[in-house]
């Protein structure tokens, strides 16, 4: 799947996808989402490919993603439908590959059915999905 590369790099992991925007302030240093109003509440984004529309709420959210990265609990790559200032700045200082995908609905659909391994090549603007066990 073609996409737009924003923060260069390469990352792979099981996809964790939500159509609900995330207040990044709710992510703790262990990569767990702590927002009782969010569908990912209690779930970990560590080592995953995080797929979500955009960040909302606190301008400080960028530091939470960075803290997760320092703690080795950040996602391996991030995919947004509309990359925003908070997410882009967080990924820039954390060296987390970030892309924007304009076929977001299709991506959500593919990732919601079963376990999917996503590979994000932000340098070459490419997302690859694989429906198999990761070695």
């Amino acid at each position: 799947m073609r996409c737009k590369g924003i923060v260069k790099g390469y990352g792979e992991g099981y996809a964790i996808a939500t159509a609900q925007p995330i207040n990044l302030l709710s992510i703790d240093s262990n990569g767990i989402v702590n927002d009782s109003a969010h569908i990912l509440n209690g779930k970990s984004i560590a080592g995953r490919v995080l797929i979500f529309p955009n960040a909302i709420g606190s301008s400080v959210g960028a530091y939470r993603l960075y803290a997760a990265k320092v703690n080795s609990k950040a996602p391996n790559a991030v995919v947004c439908s509309k990359a925003d200032i908070i997410t882009a700045s967080a990924c820039a200082i954390s060296n987390i590959p970030l892309v924007e995908c304009h076929e977001f609905d299709m991506l959500m659909e593919l990732c919601s059915k079963r376990d999917v391994i996503a590979t994000v090549d932000a340098t070459n603007a490419l997302i690859t999905l694989r429906m198999e066990e990761m070695r």
């Binding site: 606190s58 400080v60 530091y63 939470r64 960075y66 803290a67 990265k69 320092v70 703690n71």
Partner: peptide, 16 residues
């Protein structure tokens, strides 16, 4: 500028 409160930016933010 936001990101001043130690409660939100934590040790990682402080080090940065």
């Amino acid at each position: 500028i936001s990101g001043v409160n130690y409660n939100t930016i934590g040790d990682a933010g402080l080090a940065f």
